[in-house]
Amino acid sequence: MSSLAAPATLPGSSSPAPASTSASADRSRSVFPWLLLAPFLLLVLVFTIVPLFGATVLSTQQTFGPGTSRFVGLSNFRGVLSDPLFWTAFKNTFVFTLGSVCVQLPLALCFAMLLNQPGIRGKTFFRLILFSPVLVGVVYVAMIFFVLFQKRTGLINQLLAGILPSWDVGFAWLDQYIMLALILATLWQYMGFNMVYFLAALQNVPKELNEAAKMDGANWWKRFRHVTLPAITPVGSFVVLLSIIGSFQVFELPFLLLQGSTGVDNKGLTIVGYLYQTGFQSGDLGYASAIGWTIAIVLAVCAGLQRLLSAGSEVSRGGKVARGGGAK
């Protein structure tokens, strides 16, 4: 520390007392950074740490209306895990997540690869077009798709009936097939957003590697598997994790599309929707907190898996770094 502090001593300062000078410099140096960090730390403390702690405490309590709470231990968690509705919500959310990840992300990657082709005209235009839905607030997305998905009058059913004469215009997007509708609406909204991530990742694919593979006689699929995929894996796994986190917290869209209900036979009930129902509609904030923590645990497991996966691909990334170093 003192060696670091030494340059702070002014050239003209008396040499007999360097120790005290450097000690006060030390002190100001150790206080000042904290001072700069203080607003951020304060906000984190007030709006993240305290509520987190509060939610933990709450999850072990039963609440019933204002000002009433009682410690119930882990009974909320037991209740959640043995609650068939929670599992319905979990299943729905899982299906939604799976749909988002397995449909949206490959599609986003496809579009990114299309746009990444050399010689495509109007790249910026298409990128903007595909990206722009994410700028639309979720409330408006819900309003738009609520109209589009209507039976009989909805544009989607009308369009499909126009294309396929056998299509049933009464197809109940918002009832029996609400998860499909949610996946499609989310696809529209976020595909372009994820595409931009992939596009950025694709621009990091070493050009020579693709050329080498081409010369080595690798076909499109082999080039994708051995060159593109390894290069975009770090970004890809991050996008997957973000999608899982986002999808697991899906709430606004079904809430708005189903106008506050949970859909036919709870087909539109999501975990956060159930959290809202128990906590804010029935006033059992403890139970809702337990549901919240359950999601948090599931997501933490997902994040852990992602870390493990990306640690596996670290070797290949290390290669790139080492190569960059070697160029010196």
Partner: peptide, 30 residues
């Protein structure tokens, strides 16, 4: 109501949202 702090002096509430305030024992109704 949850914080026990003052809100408006008169509240005209719809049935659904008024019902939220009726959770809990009588003495905790807002």
């Amino acid at each position: 109501f949850l914080a026990g702090l003052p809100s408006a002096d008169l509240i005209e509430a719809e049935r659904r949202n008024a019902a939220r305030a009726f959770a809990g024992p009588l003495e905790s109704v807002g």
